[in-house]
Design a protein around this nucleic acid. Sequence first.
RNA 1: GGCGGCAUAGCCAAGUGGUAAGGCAACGGUCUGCAAAACCGUUAUUCUCCGGUUCGAAUCCGGAUGCCGCCUCCA
Length: 490
Amino acid sequence: MQLYNTLSRRKEPFQPLKPGKVGLYACGVTVYDDCHLGHARSTVVFEVLVRWLRRRGLKVTWVRNFTDIDDKIIRRAQETGVPWLEVAERYIASFQEDMSALGIPPAEIEPRATGHIPEIVDLIRVLQDKGFAYQGHEDVYFRVRRFPGYGKLSGQSLDDMLVGARIEVDPHKEDPLDFVLWKGSKPGEPAWDSPWGPGRPGWHIECSAMSMRYLGETLDLHGGGQDLVFPHHENELAQSEAATGRPFSRFWLHHGLLTINQEKMSKSLGNFFTVKEVLAKFPAEVVRFFLINAHYRSPLDFSDAALAEAETALLRLYTTMAHLEEVLGRHPDFKPGEYSYYPATLTLDECARLGSLTGRVDHALDDDLNTAQALGFLFEAVRLLNRLLEENSSEPGYLTILFNLHKELKELGAVLNLLQADPAAMVKSLRQKPLDLGISPEEIEQLIAARAAARKAKDFAKADNIRKDLLDKGILLEDTPQGTVWRVKG
RNA sequence: GGCGGCAUAGCCAAGUGGUAAGGCAACGGUCUGCAAAACCGUUAUUCUCCGGUUCGAAUCCGGAUGCCGCCUCCA
């Protein structure tokens, strides 16, 4: 498989350092508030990567940290009068709740910065012994110019960074670009003892300490959002390699950012939607579909319209799954076997395409996790499958083809964490999405009954009027063999 | 100012040298009292623009324009 490596700026074949085992460290969240959909994108991207690596037979250790001590948490604590630890705990729980609602399983290891103070202190001490760290006033800084490779990840040179950059002047720093490893605490702030006095870790050092603690000095994969390339990952890389003298991570993966009106979704811009807000309006699987329908390295623009589109698209997949299960359900005694069947509705080429579905999806995901292309193949298969379903045969060969395709769709869906729900139930719930309508379901049912009576009396004008009035309120009626059902017009 | 990325149909979006996936929308058809839903079909001679390399380029190279990200906390 190939992955795009930020370090080399191109796709490279990926092989784990130790055969059969792979470690992934993905930067998690700072827990001072509810997470927004951008955080969900990040987590879903790495979740799919992990599922994919596992499908390829690798044993994956996924590490995703919580930054549970930092200026924003302290500020939040001061503003709300809630102890900082409680703030952190609350938003860790909130994050876990959100990810669980999105169907994302926990990572193998979810370390917290405050649980690794000894490792962090040790790491800083090594850096100090090697001359990469120095104490200035109450803080400890990393001596950026002593590390020759500084800038290799983000492609910047130290001297270029100085020009035009907004660098805060700090009289305790030897160089304005040096960054904090250990931050001395002010009175009343949370603090841990250290050789440099009471304080707390800087932002970057925790990730170096925790990733190496769980995955060794050289990681296979390290990832995060593109906004972390500089300074966070550049600094992590510098301090880690300075300390160990070894390559820190073989691959650096960075996903594109979620945007709104083409602008980055972020707390500071205030243009964000929390996961909870989005899940109140759209089912989790729709949100997942939306997030992986674009390549992970592209920017992805959020809007209600885009989510609604994703909902319709997902419904298409589930509708075919439901149809498939209905047909197979009509033949409970059927056993798939080596039967031949020649579909009348498909060309030879189309049969071949259906036959190579799994191979093509695998190939797409092998190529830098191209989920968008993989989904495209799934939709193509569904279109051909729909045509096949029209043949409505009872021959064992025909049923075998349906049986196998159903199995394939479910297996391929599992890699993307899609299509695992009961299709009939999913189709129903996707179509009858409850919203604020200004009319009660009881009233709707009454009108439907009135319309049914009119239709029975062949008074179609009256029946059509009722339907039209409801449509004006956003209620769409559908006459089905099981009677009239209603749904919210999308 | 520096670094990086992106520009493909009405919209979203794959495709990185061999002649434009897929989704949504729209339109046509099947079905229906009429609809809706579902299904089928149609919809880019062309990939921001200008040069160049090549038998051949959306894909590679040079330039222009526009947008975005990072350089400050950020997934």
